[in-house]
């Protein structure tokens, strides 16, 4: 089967620093892949390249066979690649409702309506309410995001990702800053997305317990390159991985 996402010799350099160095990876549809590696390994840069936030110095990215290397972030999102950010990245002074509503409007291509009253779009209203129910924040829909707890803000993030109905979802440290209970909830949620909705997921995560319990496949990056790639048990046994993590 053709891979859903493919990078070919993908490279990004900042001056002399090779943040991502000739990375070629295939991602299968429906797979849940984790990318791990020490700080500065190039994980976030790789995400930035895929989502269009930074432009590649060389190499190609293909999504469902189309070349998306040079597309703008909004075009990549429209193709079906969603992203949840590492640092909570919401609209702080808008309400929870509005935060989820904007991506719903965007997906339904209703954002350029100039003169129709926003609240009159019934299917958008319903869809927004439905997602608020899914993430369990219906009660808090009128609260502005900057007044929410950190955990709730992460939930809004996931609501935003759901609203975009991605085919492929990039998750940047989804459990960062969460307590054990919240982490378990998040793991359950991510697994649900993958299994019930068949969303392909690529994850960057530091919590090894999460990584090894959730992933179908693990990719280890180090100084911009891929040093190991395989099933969780293969990675656990890999000598080079141990060296990369423990050698320093």
């Amino acid at each position: 089967m053709e891979p859903i996402l493919q990078t070919q010799n993908l490279t990004k350099s900042f001056g002399h620093l090779m943040a991502v160095n000739r990375v070629s990876l295939d991602f299968k549809e429906g797979e849940l892949t984790s990318i791990i590696g020490p700080n500065g390994a190039g994980k976030t840069t790789l995400f930035n390249l895929i989502s269009g936030k930074t432009k590649a110095s060389a190499g190609k990215i293909r999504f469902k066979g189309d070349d998306i290397t040079k597309l703008a972030p909004y075009e990549i999102v429209r193709k079906g690649i969603g992203r949840i950010f590492q640092i909570t990245n919401l609209f702080p002074e808008l309400t929870v409702y509005e935060n989820v509503r904007v991506p719903v409007l965007a997906r339904k291509r209703e954002t350029s309506r100039l003169l129709s009253l926003d609240r009159s779009l019934r299917d958008v209203n319903e869809e927004t309410s439905r997602i608020l129910g899914l993430i369990g924040l219906s009660e808090k829909s009128d609260i502005t995001c900057n007044a929410l707890s950190h955990g709730d803000q992460r939930l809004v993030e996931t609501g935003v990702a759901l609203a975009l109905e991605p085919v492929l979802l990039l998750l940047d440290e989804p459990t960062g800053g969460m307590g054990p209970e919240e982490t378990d909830e998040m793991v359950k949620f991510v697994r649900g997305l993958n299994e019930n909705r068949n969303i392909t997921i690529i994850l960057v995560e530091h919590d090894m317990r999460v990584v090894f319990s959730i992933s179908d496949r693990i990719i280890v990056m180090h100084s911009g390159g891929v040093i190991a790639d395989g099933k969780p048990d293969e990675i656990q046994a890999d000598e080079r991985v141990k060296e990369a993590y423990l050698g320093r």
């Binding site: 989502s51 609209f91 009253l117």
Partner: peptide, 20 residues
């Protein structure tokens, strides 16, 4: 309007808007 809501979200976080 929906357009107006998008404007407000641009005010709040213009980089994020692209990723929607």
């Amino acid at each position: 309007s929906p357009f107006g809501l998008v404007l407000k979200s641009i005010r709040e976080n213009h980089e994020r808007v692209e990723f929607l």
